[in-house]
Simulated scan of single mutants.
Amino acid sequence: MTGKIEARLSERNIVLPAASAPAANYVPTVRTGNLLFISGQIPVQDGKITHTGKLGEEYAVEDGYAAARTCALNIVAQAKAALGDLDKVVRVVKLVGFVNGVPSFPDAPKVINGASDLMAEIFGDSGSHARSAVTVASLPMGVAVEVEAIIEVA
């Protein structure tokens, strides 16, 4: 039987990628009690990084939004790998988004909306979350965006 969240993904033609392996010495998720901490996810699709470079230089806000959405898909994929069933997600508690931008780039919140909007689309009211969105000087492998999450689980 398909769960509620899996059905919602199918209705919206959202296909989750396979959860990717860590790129360094860390684990993709840690569960403690009823919280699932998901390590920072980068814009990887089909095993390839989709966005490297800086917002405000190589990319506009719309490109960053798309990159953040890809990061969020990878967060949901990691949650599914850790939990087995996305219906175990009680609430997306917090997202932290990092935007690789030029020093004067003011629109990190608009970029990270790509991740926030996807969480609301997938989890409905349970996808509403607290958030930080900051512009940074650089990110690993030169990616344009990285997003991490804290999720309450059943």
Rank of each mutant, 00 (worst) to 15 (best):
G3R: 02
I5T: 13
I5D: 09
R8F: 12
R8P: 13
E11A: 15
N13A: 14
V15H: 05
A18V: 11
A19F: 08
S20T: 09
A21N: 05
P22M: 12
A23L: 11
A24Q: 13
N25L: 15
N25H: 15
Y26C: 09
V27T: 08
V27G: 12
P28H: 11
P28K: 13
T32P: 08
N34P: 00
N34K: 08
L36Q: 06
I38Y: 07
P43A: 01
V44G: 07
Q45N: 02
G47W: 00
K48N: 11
I49M: 13
I49H: 11
T50M: 10
T52R: 14
T52P: 09
G53V: 03
G56S: 11
G56Q: 03
A60Y: 05
A60S: 11
E62W: 07
E62K: 08
D63P: 05
Y65I: 01
A67V: 04
T70I: 10
C71N: 09
A77C: 14
Q78V: 11
Q78P: 10
K80D: 04
L86I: 07
L86H: 07
D87W: 01
K88T: 01
V89W: 00
V89R: 06
V89I: 03
K94E: 06
K94A: 12
L95Y: 04
V96A: 07
G97T: 07
F98K: 06
P103N: 04
A108E: 05
V111N: 10
V111H: 04
V111C: 03
I112Y: 05
I112Q: 01
G114R: 00
A115F: 00
S116W: 03
L118F: 08
L118M: 07
A120F: 01
I122C: 13
F123L: 12
F123C: 14
D125N: 14
S126E: 02
S126Y: 04
S128D: 08
H129T: 00
R131N: 08
S132M: 00
A133W: 03
T135A: 05
